Amino acid sequence: MRELRWVSEEGEGIEHLAFDARSDGFSAESVVVGQRYGQAYGLHYEVRCDPQWRTTYAWLKIVGGAEVELHGDGDGHWHDGHGVALSSIEGCIDIDIAATPFTNTLPIRRLQLAEGERKPIAVAYISTPDLQVTRVEQAYTCLALNDEYRYEGIFREFTADLQIDLDGLVLDYPTLFRRLPSAN
């Protein structure tokens, strides 16, 4: 298990993430204390993926507020914590939690892009702090294999070149997040 932290570059905020890679898949548990659109929040979340990095479970809870639970089958079919099908995100394999750079790891690892290759995808975007889940269009391009990837938020005309470590976890997300050095 690895533990790491990111700080927000657009305001006050920090995230502490515990990441575990096992033969049956990947999991992360995290706490984010941040501010978005002038509103302070605390967020606790858990994400699980299968060995191919397809998201199979996500649970998010805003301290004193909203809670969302998503279950995916890895093939783009989703239901909530009550078993209700979520047709609005049908076909999405990945999730993108607005408050964290961690969820960029999911498509970076799952897509296995060759250097120079670009792939548009639809993701289940979870806004913070209201936890609204919507389908959005994004794209990833491998700029330097296992080192740097371009993220395009097509739905909001935003682009960032992300530097990653050997696990595919973001080191630097210009203007938004920066990884803190390990305390070990």
Rank of each mutant, 00 (worst) to 15 (best):
M1R: 12
V7N: 09
E9V: 12
E9C: 11
E10R: 15
G11F: 09
E12S: 08
E12R: 12
E12Y: 05
H16V: 14
L17C: 12
L17V: 08
L17F: 04
A18R: 13
F19W: 15
S23R: 14
A28T: 15
E29H: 14
V33G: 05
Y37S: 13
G38L: 14
Q39S: 15
Y41M: 14
Y41V: 10
L43E: 03
H44D: 11
Y45Q: 07
E46Q: 15
E46S: 15
R48M: 11
W59D: 10
L60W: 03
K61F: 02
I62Y: 06
V63Y: 10
V63D: 14
V63T: 06
A66E: 13
E67Y: 03
V68K: 02
D73K: 04
G74S: 08
D80Y: 03
I89P: 04
G91D: 08
G91C: 06
I93D: 08
A98F: 03
A98T: 01
T100F: 11
F102Q: 02
L106K: 10
I108W: 06
Q112W: 00
Q112E: 10
A114K: 12
A114E: 15
E117N: 00
E117G: 00
K119H: 11
P120M: 12
I121K: 06
A122E: 13
Y125Q: 10
Y125F: 12
S127N: 06
Q132E: 09
Q132Y: 09
V133N: 02
V133G: 01
R135E: 09
V136N: 05
V136P: 14
V136I: 13
Q138M: 08
L143Y: 01
A144D: 00
A144R: 01
N146Q: 15
D147E: 11
E148Y: 01
R150A: 13
Y151M: 05
E152T: 13
G153V: 02
G153S: 09
F158E: 09
I164D: 12
D165F: 04
Y173H: 10
F177W: 10
R178L: 07
R179M: 08
